[in-house]
Nucleic acid binder design. Structure first.
Lengths: 150, 150
DNA sequence: GCTTGACCTCAAGTCGACTTGAACTTGTAC
DNA sequence: GTACAAGTTCAAGTCGACTTGAGGTCAAGC
């Protein structure tokens, strides 16, 4: 089970063939060669795809992720860049926690309009201090959809 | 300071005028009217923009956010939808924590190739169990860039 | 030897959220 | 009364990450 063809990789990784081809095209993964027309991949590609998925979840772009692998395909990541990103994740977690609290409050608060509820306003201010809001012109480019049904 | 023109709104909210116009175009915010050509907004719009920013950070699309405001412009959010989203945020936080740990490990682990490091593999498996990776075809649409310099 | 199903290529399309550019208008300051 | 900064419209462009479609190829099974 060393060599997998693209269909198997797709099935085992959950990444569809068109995406695998795209990843190969941009140099994110490499195939061993072909069997007829079919791309053949080393089993390692599965772990690599996991890393890619994690990188995406961490907010890295595909380009950044690609930059993390050395020429030989092994991960080769600048350590301080990783630490920076880890710290960013930390901050992001704090934001998410506040946000979760706001949502829960809004869901439970009986006030007719949240705009007048002191708790709501206080939470908003906290969020504001965390720079969740009033973030001048440099927020996420596009919304991240939470993963839905498996 | 009840009525603000678009420039002021932009300055105070950090949302650029073109975006404000776009938001008005899609019905997310409303202007009171014009002073000459210039859009005038009620001060309330600032809070609304905060809510929008929070919604985006929470992973809601603009369309979903728009759906959360009733006709009168007051937030009018289906409570169970909020709870669902709060729970999703909770899950997302757990994912981020694992991810942070992976990044920190990779940053600190002296092993020449992480692929052979048992700790790394264990963390990867944990991430896998959390469905951070191997998530079949329904992940985030596009990467979220962490907010950078203010 | 032929069918079949899974792959292939390449160009173009999609999606959300904006931004940009060209050409025009206006209130305010001098 | 004129210059000018800051607004305006509208169409089109951008970005990342894919997906889709049309038309072609191939290895394995009958």
């Amino acid at each position: 089970m060393r060599v997998l063809d693209i269909g198997e990789v797709a099935e085992r990784s959950g990444v569809v063939p068109s995406t695998l081809r795209y990843y190969e095209e941009i140099g994110l993964i490499a195939s061993l060669g072909r069997h007829g027309l079919r791309r053949q991949f080393d089993g390692d590609v599965l772990l690599k795809l996991s890393l890619i998925a994690m990188g995406k979840a961490a907010g890295f772009s595909l380009e950044e992720i690609a930059g993390m692998f050395g020429r030989d395909g092994r991960p080769e990541i600048p350590r301080d860049q990783l630490r920076v990103r880890a710290d960013e994740l930390q901050r992001q977690m704090v934001e998410l926690r506040t946000l979760r609290d706001v949502l829960r409050h809004v869901a439970d608060c009986p006030a007719p309009s949240h705009l007048e509820c002191p708790t709501f306003r206080k939470l908003m201010q906290a969020a504001s201090r965390e720079r969740l809001v009033y973030r001048p012109s440099s927020g996420p480019r596009s919304g991240r959809k939470a993963a839905s049904k498996p």
